[in-house]
């Protein structure tokens, strides 16, 4: 399924490529994806939105300057 708002569009699906199920999230703008296992997803489920704020810093991801 696709989840979108005015800032991003991602596809989410179950990833069965490995030994166990994971959740694959694909950023449809860049095509980049990650597969998250149950423990990582649990961490997200237990996180607050404030905990995730640092990950939203644009300088952490696509718009990072070379060191």
């Amino acid at each position: 399924m696709t989840v979108a708002n005015e800032y991003a569009t991602v596809r989410i699906e179950i990833d069965r490529q490995g030994n166990g199920d994971r959740l694959r999230i694909t950023d449809l703008r860049t095509g980049r994806s990650t597969s998250l296992d149950a423990l990582e997803l649990q961490a997200l489920a237990l996180a607050t939105h404030r905990d995730l704020v640092p990950l939203l810093d644009p300088a952490r991801t696509l718009w990072r300057e070379a060191d």
Partner: peptide, 25 residues
């Protein structure tokens, strides 16, 4: 959206208005 990202230069803010970060700081 828990965060808003400006479409012009990518500055990103929380939904309480705080600046999260900017591209190429």
């Amino acid at each position: 959206a828990h965060a808003f990202r400006c479409p012009y230069h990518g500055w990103t803010f929380t939904n309480t208005g705080e600046l999260v970060g900017v591209p190429f700081p």
